[in-house]
């Protein structure tokens, strides 16, 4: 590992050398302006589509507009309200549960498929890889509608099975099962995507490592455990972080399934759905902005913790 990824120490040394090469402080000052020119196109777009909306949400979150009484400055009152809001906490608890159950299942499946494709023992690996990836290419709206029809307890596949075989499969769109049903749709959509991340990481593992393992007489399982998994650890962490962000932002699937399961998928089902209904149904734009900011901060903290934990010790090995 050390040879492939330059350690932080090595990078630092090179950076210091570069600085010394620059000479007088005045010249280095001018150079920094040139650098700004290069990043300016990116920065301006970044400011427009990223910083500005966040800043505007931050501004909105300090006010409160009411049907009676108009707009008033309320300071951090909206934030205080979010922390005491049972709707918000139940939504957050729901996506946290989703995260703890669905993400491990999805990532383990994706990893298993990636290892199988990479093993070289699979017949028609290309077709296999493509067909696993295909659901990701289906637009989320189409995928959810399709699953919605399959789940349909009256006229869908479930109804058909129940009627034909006399089974009594419980309603997948009922309040007890709908979260699992959503998890199933998300897993179906994203296993291929994550598989591709893992597979591409596996492709760049140097052959020398496999040769060394073969010389040492390692079994295929040992190769997986001691060569492949450590080699794709970075990708595993990235995929986990993406999945965490995706779970906390769960919106499309419940929003599209909602017309089929109005009583099960409530307006506060996930934090994003809650923010959506707050602003577009209740015109509580200020409070919705606050929910969005709190949720964003929360997601960042969790993702950062996972990254810290996941990357721990990677630099020194």
């Amino acid at each position: 590992m050390t040879r492939m990824v330059p350690t932080i120490g090595a990078r630092k040394r090179r950076a210091t050398a570069a600085r010394q090469h620059l000479g007088s402080p005045r010249r280095s000052n001018r150079r920094s302006w040139v650098g700004l020119g290069f990043v300016a196109p990116f920065l301006s777009v970044f400011a427009l589509v990223f910083v500005a909306p966040i800043a505007y949400s931050g501004y909105l979150s300090l006010y409160r507009t009411r049907l009676i009484g108009g707009t008033t400055f309320v300071g951090v009152q909206n934030y205080a309200d979010v922390f005491g809001d049972t709707h918000f906490w139940s939504a957050l608890a729901r996506v946290a549960l989703f995260l703890l159950v669905q993400v491990p299942i999805m990532l383990v499946l994706a990893l298993a498929v990636a290892l199988a494709v990479d093993s070289g023992r699979l017949y028609g690996a290309g077709v296999f890889r493509l067909s696993i990836f295909l659901p990701y290419a289906v637009p989320a709206v189409v995928a959810v509608l399709m699953w919605g029809f399959l789940y349909g307890p009256q006229f869908g596949l479930v109804a058909g099975l129940n009627r034909t075989y006399g089974w009594s499969i419980p309603n997948p769109l009922g309040p007890d099962l709908v979260l699992a049903s959503i998890g199933n749709v998300v897993t179906w959509s994203y296993v291929g995507y994550n598989m591709l991340i893992f597979f591409s990481a596996l492709r760049v593992v140097p052959l020398a490592l496999y040769e060394a393992a073969a010389v040492d007489g390692a079994s295929p399982w040992r190769v997986i455990w001691h060569v492949k998994l450590p080699a794709i650890r970075g990708s595993l962490v990235i995929a986990t972080i993406f999945s965490i962000i995706g779970s906390f932002q769960l919106f499309n699937e419940p929003a599209i399934l909602r017309p089929l399961a109005m009583n099960a998928i409530t307006t506060d089902y996930t934090p994003n759905l809650y923010a959506y209904f707050l602003s577009f149904s209740g015109q509580q734009y200020n409070y919705a902005a606050t929910v969005a900011i709190v949720m964003g901060a929360f997601t960042m903290v969790i993702a950062y913790l996972v990254q810290l934990r996941g990357m721990r010790g990677m630099g020194d090995r």
Partner: peptide, 21 residues
């Protein structure tokens, strides 16, 4: 209600439970 549009959106969150639980 002078906020019936909002109220109706909240109907299934609350009264809707009687139909499925």
């Amino acid at each position: 209600l002078p906020f019936q549009v909002y109220a109706n959106d909240k109907f299934n969150d609350t009264v809707g439970k009687a139909y499925v639980s």
